[in-house]
Design a protein around this nucleic acid. Structure first.
Lengths: 137, 137, 137, 137
DNA sequence: GTGGTCTAGACCACC
DNA sequence: GTGGTCTAGACCACG
């Protein structure tokens, strides 16, 4: 099983956090469906070129959040995520990020109009770059 | 000189970073004009109820960024920020936050339309709460 | 990893600055190559007989200059310095010192000839003392 | 009496030190001859746009070095400097600066030849800029 | 009064 | 083990 995780080692963001964030997104967005068998700790650690202890922590944290479930001697699987929970999760995630962005704009006294213009410009660019035009539920 | 800085003790964000962020915003947005004498290290430390060393670090970091200028035995002043640089600074700040938000939306496969709707809703709410309707150029 | 740093306690030059200067020279001169793992903060502090905070500051300052890169929980490494940048760095360092010397000579109205003679005399002596006759490119 | 002192307020070098250095050079080089009456503390402070206490310290320090002499109610005068002392003074000053420069060159592993070339280039430029071709004793 | 350096030590987060 | 943050306080240098 191959999982597309990007590590930015020059970032100040802790390794384990980068991995968690990406894995969590893939799970709640449904890209990793219920029951999917994740790579073993050693395997993922190897392919990310990081220590096993870091991956161990990631799996542990996500298991504590209820997103993963581990079966002794078998492996780590994606748990069932309720549709309702899924929606809440996604929205919370995005909302918090948007809130931070708007707050920073207010802090430097951007007008609402300026902020909107900047947002519209960026959203076009980024969605195009991501090769997605809109895959709504 | 009184400076309105809010500390969130329960946040995981380091103290010095919270202070830096807020001061930086006030400087690049022009709320603290060139030449303004900031409160002394000990004074600000007292009013924020933190150690002088923490404030010292904040002033030093911002001096390294070129936003402050300090003279021993005299005090710490806001330095000149070119109009052009000011614009860039503000935009970079906001852009990075927006980018992170959009990235997270893409990661959980939000459609462009969903994201836009959420953004428009939130921007209304937050700008109203901030009691500002738009102070564009 | 052992690093040859000399501390002059009786000097008016701040401790952290003495250490920074010497480390910086070793890095830009290539004596500490890219990727070299520096001694841990506590280790260097111990061997220099100074506080860990002082060493921490040194590492941080050099990181801000782009000469070091630190990873939490792992250590502090020498980062990549472009050959071009390396040359510029070295030259700037020496140039500034030379400039100060020439300025002081001009200020006391030394003639160009006197200064040159003094320089030639000293350079012979000091390079002999350093046990180096010239390791040009 | 007008004294050509340049203050660089963006420098990290303390104010009093900048002034002392320049005054000292003018005295030992003979530009300010024995018995010259210096401007009053208030006067110099005014023209340098700094506090009187700073100038007071400068005069005091130079008096302690034996370069100045103060007469109550009359003013501050340049003392007699022995020819021998004058030479020693000048040489020490320049020598120390040169030594620092050569040391820094050795630290970054400049070869003797490289350093010499750089020196010759700079000395030409700076002496030309100073509008002096050589006014030896 | 101001800022600048340094210490000793605590406690946390990361790997 | 590593680095990162923060404290309380001492002492010095500058204006």
């Amino acid at each position: 099983m191959w999982i597309p995780i990007q590590i930015n080692e020059s970032s100040a963001e802790p390794l384990y956090h980068q991995i968690e964030t990406q894995l969590r997104s893939m799970i709640v967005s449904g890209q990793l469906g219920e029951g999917t068998l994740l790579p073993s700790i050693r395997e993922l650690a190897g392919s990310l070129n990081c220590s096993a202890i870091t991956v161990r922590r990631v799996y542990q944290d996500l298991e504590n959040e209820g997103l993963l479930r581990t079966k002794q001697g078998t492996g780590t699987f994606v748990s069932k995520v309720e549709e309702e929970q899924r929606g809440t999760y996604k929205q919370t995630l995005v909302q918090e990020a948007l809130e931070a962005a708007i707050d920073s704009a207010i802090a430097v006294q951007y007008s609402k109009e300026e902020l909107q213009a900047l947002f519209l410009e960026m959203i076009e660019k980024k969605y195009k770059a991501a090769g997605k035009g809109g895959n709504a539920k």
